[in-house]
Nucleic acid binder design. Structure first.
Ligand code: MN
Ligand code: MN
Ligand code: MN
Ligand code: MN
Lengths: 218, 218
DNA sequence: TTATTTTGTTAGACACGTCTAACTTTATAC
DNA sequence: GTATAAAGTTAGACGTGTCTAACAAAATAA
């Protein structure tokens, strides 16, 4: 069994790996807010457990075993977030710090029960896919709202940034997953979009925001 | 903030204190399955944090602060057990090991939400009282089923032993909290009771079992 | 291509929570 | 009331996860 600490390293390696392809000691160090020498020594430990390929001065890479174990922790994280939102009434902006702790609970029954009560959800409250029991993840191909054209109507499928501030901002505009958004106009200069959705027929979405929203064709 | 480990020591001190009055290093050592020298050094640490009164060779005692913090962990434990049973469909025999982990989650909102969803329960699934937000516990005075007389009808209010085996045994006899039990006869020799409850009109309860069931007059 | 900056490693330290071995104090038995 | 047993403490060690200081390698800039 991996320790609480090891689990957090595995998860960070996994998510950084998906975001940036290559993961360096420095990236991990910054993400976990842990100094580089500490990261190096943990990488050697995880390498000894066959969870990470480690060679001095080379980028870090999870082994297949490491990827699987990381994905299973992420599964627990995302199931928890979904449970907190759907079955406990939390807002999507509140759940991450709680899930960060709950993900380390050792009890298959606990998470199986969440999964069952939720009806075997495929995505978490932010639209990220929930890995299956074997650690397999099915990534749906979404596109950024910012890449859409005038006249298109799209459905909001996921958020890229899940910071509390950003999610609170979306709440204040009544923007949530599943929302149908029609693009009315795009300002060439700065990419600002004029859109309509729900009862809001004359809203503005800045490029900073549309870059962080993933959509699919409605 | 207290560590995960410190929390488990506090909780053990609290429950042993209620069961036996005085707590010795040896008791704690056996309860936590941690060797005595380790316990001694932790007691010094908790004493430095004003959570325990510690003097060499004297019985251990929680300070008021220590009692309060212990009770708040127990609150989280029991709310969790109740939530697992009432809102997630677990059996009362399954929840303890999960609650043992969940009780260490640091999130007031998480437990407040459980409390609210449960309708501010006063007791856990085993009939033990849930301490309030200030760590105050209201103990109801129940009596052992074994101390009841022939002809009495009592309501099952709590179980003393919460081992999985005992709870499974009760499940197999369809014995659960709230059950009304009528005492039809008591064998003087070994204390075996003849009782009726629900649709079971001719059941036998051994003294070993009736000693572990707490009831109130119906 | 050499100098500088950034990234990464090594060495050594430390807090935490655990252990065993050895010793001391207190309790129990005779 | 001494002898023995049980309980408790002290000393010293160890694994985990963290740090800082010093050094080395790789990347970038001049
Ligand atoms: Mn999250
Ligand atoms: Mn975590
Ligand atoms: Mn319990
Ligand atoms: Mn616990």
């Amino acid at each position: 069994m991996n320790s609480y600490t090891e689990e957090n390293y595995l998860k960070a390696l996994y998510t950084l790996g998906n975001e940036r392809g290559e993961v360096n000691v420095n990236d991990l160090s910054r993400k976990l807010e842990i100094k580089m020498p500490t990261v190096t020594s943990m990488m050697k430990k995880l390498a000894a457990k066959k969870l990470v390929y480690y060679e001095s001065y080379k980028p870090l890479k999870l082994t297949e075993k490491g990827k699987r174990e990381a994905a299973l922790i992420i599964r627990k994280h995302r199931l928890t977030e979904m449970f907190l939102v759907e079955n406990m009434g939390f807002g999507w902006e509140e759940v991450h710090p709680i899930a960060e702790q709950v993900e380390h609970i050792q009890s298959a029954a606990f998470f199986d029960k969440m999964d069952q009560l939720l009806g075997y959800p495929k995505v978490d409250p932010h639209g990220s896919p929930i890995p299956d029991r074997n650690g397999k993840v099915i990534w749906k191909e979404y596109q950024k709202l910012s890449s859409c054209k005038v006249g298109e109507t799209v459905r909001l499928a996921a958020v890229i940034n899940t910071s509390e501030d950003f999610l609170r901002f979306l709440n204040s505009r009544e923007i949530h997953l599943g929302l149908k958004v029609k693009i009315k106009a795009i300002e060439q200069f700065d990419g600002t979009m004029k859109v309509s959705y729900a009862k809001r027929t004359d809203e503005t979405i800045s490029h900073v925001v549309s870059e962080r929203l993933l959509v699919e064709k409605a």
